[in-house]
């Protein structure tokens, strides 16, 4: 058992314990905060698949996050308020969009890929704010939180447990995938594309499927985020959201299993703590981020668990 294994375990337990402790002290607000951490971590696990394993710097994952959110808003408005159905619809739509945009974007690499994924996300953003039934700039509000079989989702703790369960499931998928032949091919493509090609493995489909799967995971997080806020707004699709997801992955540690969890926890707590201290919290968030990029390479987990083997 490596040190990282134990740190991951502690992180998972801390996140699980946080809402119970908060409720014991009667501070139900912190349950919402913990739910936010779990949801953003889930979205970042999706991104980490493309960014960490595949080295695909997608600057457009807000599109998939938003697609999940709008799936929740639209289906709820139609009276189809079942979470599993919403997740499925959101994931299928996000997967199809990722398949189409990925097929174009993955023909390029490096800085072109960053800008093209950003541009496609903007395209979806502008489409959503100009299409009348999607609520325009105001977004859509959800009258009630959507339903989950046999669970009362209106209780904050229950909703947290749903989000946490999905996060664990996504982490499990990520870990299994990384250990599989597919994961090895994906990481191989990041490290040396030519070598992989000369082994007879086609790089393009491997990357495309990773991109699609990554988008699907992030879209489920988007649906949960809409349910958490009972509100979907175009800001879920904005490029700031894409940036925040990258920040979360990088803060925690790129390509690490629990990197997104550590990153999301730090990001949400930082946002909360700075927001309580000063109105200008974005200024300090920017300075902290800048400091992390310039001086703390490899993210937080690298500080505690040592450098990743990840090359």
């Amino acid at each position: 058992m490596t040190r990282e294994f134990w740190i991951n375990g502690v992180l998972a337990l801390l996140l699980l314990a946080a809402p119970f402790i908060a409720l014991a002290f009667g501070e139900s607000f912190y349950v919402t905060l913990a739910t936010r951490v779990a949801i953003l971590a889930l979205a970042a696990v999706g991104l980490n698949l493309a960014l960490g394993l595949g080295g695909l710097v997608s600057f457009g994952h807000a599109a998939f996050f938003g697609i999940g959110g709008y799936a929740a808003g639209l289906l709820a408005a139609e009276g189809l308020a079942s979470m599993p159905l919403i997740w499925l619809v959101g994931a299928v739509v996000a997967g199809l969009v990722a398949l189409a945009t990925g097929a174009v974007s993955l023909r390029t690499s490096g800085v072109y890929f960053i800008m093209i994924t950003l541009a496609f996300a903007q395209m979806i953003y502008y489409f959503v704010i100009s299409w009348p039934t999607l609520g325009g700039e105001d977004g859509l509000s959800l009258a009630l939180r959507n339903e989950f079989p046999f669970v009362n989702t209106l209780k904050p703790l229950n909703f947290f447990l749903i989000a946490y369960g999905l996060l664990l499931l996504a982490l499990f998928v990520f870990a299994r995938l990384r250990a599989s032949r597919f994961g090895a091919a994906l990481e191989g493509a990041r490290q040396n594309e030519t070598r992989l090609a000369s082994l007879g493995i086609e790089v393009f489909p491997v990357r495309l499927w990773a991109f699609v799967l990554s988008a699907m995971i992030t879209s489920v997080a988007g649906a949960l985020y809409a349910d958490l806020n009972r509100f979907v707004s175009p800001s879920m699709l904005s490029w700031h959201m894409s940036g925040e997801l990258i920040v979360i992955v990088l803060l925690g540690g790129v390509g690490r299993l629990f990197g997104p969890v550590a990153g999301a926890a730090v990001f949400v707590l930082l946002e909360f703590a700075l927001g309580g201290l000063t109105e200008r919290w974005q200024l300090f968030l920017g300075l902290i981020l800048l400091g992390t990029v310039l001086f703390a390479r490899g993210g937080l987990l690298a500080l505690f668990a040592g450098k990743a083997r990840h090359g």
Binding site: G243, I246, V254, R280, Q282, L285, G286, L287, L290, R297
Partner: peptide, 18 residues
């Protein structure tokens, strides 16, 4: 490029707030 994206993203936050 990833580090560049992140650092200049941080600069946007700083500039806007300033």
């Amino acid at each position: 490029h990833l580090d560049q994206v992140l650092a200049t993203f941080a600069l946007i936050l700083i500039f806007s707030e300033a």
